[in-house]
Structure formats: structure tokens, C-alpha cells
């Protein structure tokens, strides 16, 4: 993996800006960094690429050597030892499962309907092992990894001294540092539909994050309801804003999967997070509703 594109512009002498893109986690991570020297920006992008690559290896379920792949292969038969970071991530996932009434579940993709209402795996803190419940259980951290990575990368960028930046993971997970150099926030419009420039709703990020869940850009239904084991077929988009990119990612997935009647109860447990539901018609007109 390498930095796919790096551009540095000094067209605005007051605010030089760097743009970089990296292919990662089956999508693309884009960064806009303001007021940073070119060499430092380039070095930061390379460090971000290294971090992302390392996290992708850790959380991928497709790479033979990845730790998660080993868990999926052997975890149904025996307890499998994992390193600190994966163990912590699995602890977090289980906490989020309980904190979303089971609508966020990293085992939701496996052949085990109803798994959302009970744990799909057991962690042994003393032995640092994980054991899957049932041979059919698989862990898929796709709904967690982007948010987790974005959270870590946001910290790395902020720690490097950057005070104004946007990190965009596949357009669906965005983290902002500071604000736009010519405004009080970073304006982020969620599109009404694919290929249309019209905005369904504008969100304002300032040292905060945003995550969008719904049908894929091609209309694919790729989110599972952990309770039923079925794909969620719902003609709406859920956007969650808040401090942490990881929590936003988890909540947007859970709230899209959850029925409307459960959403308020779930989001109310997370102080400082807000959810918005967008229902857009074919011609671009959208109804926007806050979950409250």
C-alpha cells in the first residue's frame, strides 16, 4: 500500500493546503491538511498510510495471515489467543452490542439469526483469548474498523500539530479537526442521491465526526439486522454526528438496522451524539428528521 495521490498547493499563500488519498480497507481514505509545510504533510501522510495498513491487516477477515482470520478459522473449536489491540477492539464491540440493544453486532453477517440479542463470542481477560459461539459464527469488523482507524488517525494528525484538517474514509466516515480556515466549521453536505449534486442536508463539523449508513451507492443493501439475520431493506439514510468517529460509525450502523421505535432509546444513551434520518425521493427531494 502506498499513498495513491499527494498534492500540495500554495495558491493561497495564507493557507497552503495538502490533499492525499490512500486506498485502504477496500475503499479510499482522503485527507485535507491546512497550514502545514509540504515535507511535514508528506511525512504525515506516509505515517498515516503505515498506520492504516497495519490496522487493515489486524481487522481484515480476508487475509490469511490476519489475526481475525485465525479467530474465524479456529475460534469455533477452541479459544484463540489475540494481542492487546484486537482484544480491546473485541471488548469494545461487545460493549457496543449491549449498548445498542444488539443492533450493532460484528457477528451479524454470519449464519446465525438472532445473534444480536446475545453475545456471539466469549472473551477471557485473564488468558487474552476469544472463543466463538458456534461453528457458523464469523466475526466481521468492517463496521467497526473504519471508525476505529479514523479515530486513531485523527489523533495522529492532531498530535502532529495540525489544527485544521478533514479526514474522509469512503465518504461515509468523516472526522474534522478544527474548522475551515474561512468559517467556523467544516461544512459537509450529504448528497440526496448518487450522481446528483443536490444536498440533502448540511452538517457542520468542528472537532467532531460524522458517519453515514444506508444503502450502498449502487443501491445495495449491505447492512444486516442482527436480530433477524436478514439484510435491512429500508429506504433511508442515517447520519450520526458526535465527538468520536468510532462511536459515530457504530451508531449509524446500529440505528440503520434498528426499527424506528428503538432509535431514540439507543441514541439517548450516548451524550453528545445526534442522529438524523434522511428519506430522499428519486428526484432528490428529502425529508430530514432528527431522532429525538
Amino acid at each position: 500500500m502506498t499513498v495513491e495521490e499527494f498534492r500540495y498547493s500554495t495558491k493561497n499563500a495564507l493557507h497552503p493546503v495538502a490533499y492525499a488519498s490512500i486506498k485502504a480497507m477496500h475503499t479510499r481514505l482522503e485527507m485535507v491538511l491546512v497550514d502545514m509545510a509540504e515535507d511535514a504533510a508528506r511525512a504525515l501522510c506516509e505515517a498515516v498510510e503505515t498506520d492504516t495498513s497495519e490496522m487493515e491487516r489486524r481487522f481484515s477477515r480476508h487475509e490469511a495471515a490476519a489475526a481475525l482470520t485465525v479467530v474465524n478459522m479456529r475460534g469455533g473449536r477452541e479459544a484463540v489467543g489475540v494481542d492487546d489491540e484486537l482484544f480491546m477492539a473485541l471488548e469494545l464491540c461487545e460493549a457496543f452490542r449491549r449498548g445498542t440493544e444488539g443492533y450493532f453486532d460484528i457477528t451479524a453477517c454470519s449464519d446465525c439469526a438472532g445473534v444480536g440479542v446475545r453475545a456471539g463470542y466469549a472473551l477471557d481477560a485473564a488468558a487474552h483469548t476469544v472463543r466463538l459461539y458456534g461453528a457458523g459464527t464469523l466475526l466481521d469488523m468492517g463496521g467497526f474498523a473504519k471508525g476505529y482507524a479514523l479515530e486513531r488517525l485523527r489523533r495522529r494528525v492532531a498530535d502532529s500539530g495540525v489544527t485544521q484538517a478533514v479526514l474522509n474514509f469512503g465518504d461515509s466516515s468523516i472526522a474534522a479537526i478544527g474548522h475551515h480556515p474561512y468559517g467556523e466549521w467544516w461544512p459537509v453536505g450529504v448528497g440526496a442521491s448518487v450522481g446528483q449534486p443536490s444536498v440533502a442536508h448540511e452538517f457542520r463539523l468542528r472537532d467532531s465526526a460524522l458517519s453515514v449508513s444506508g444503502r450502498g451507492r449502487g443501491g445495495e443493501y449491505h447492512i444486516f439486522d442482527p436480530h433477524s439475520g436478514e439484510r435491512v431493506v429500508r429506504e433511508e439514510t442515517v447520519v450520526v454526528e458526535g465527538r468520536s468517529a468510532l462511536v459515530c460509525e457504530v451508531l449509524s450502523t446500529a440505528l440503520y438496522a434498528a426499527p424506528d421505535s428503538r432509535r431514540k432509546s439507543i441514541i439517548s444513551r450516548y451524550e453528545g451524539y445526534a442522529a438524523t434520518v434522511l428519506r430522499c425521493g428519486a428526484t432528490g427531494g428529502c425529508k430530514v428528521r432528527r431522532v429525538e
Binding site: K11, H15, T27, V32, G214
Partner: peptide, 24 residues
């Protein structure tokens, strides 16, 4: 997101539409 870069280059801020569901 390229619009964001252009805005900064030109010293302006306006809404940038780039967020949406994932390219899954």
C-alpha cells in the same frame, strides 16, 4: 472533497457535498 481544497485555495467557504453512504 476536492471542492474543499479549491475553496481554501480561493479563500472562500461554501457547502461541499461529498458525504454519503459507503461505496460498499
Amino acid at each position: 472533497i476536492h471542492q474543499l481544497v479549491t475553496q481554501i485555495e480561493n479563500g472562500i467557504m461554501s457547502n461541499s457535498v461529498f458525504a454519503g453512504t459507503s461505496w460498499a
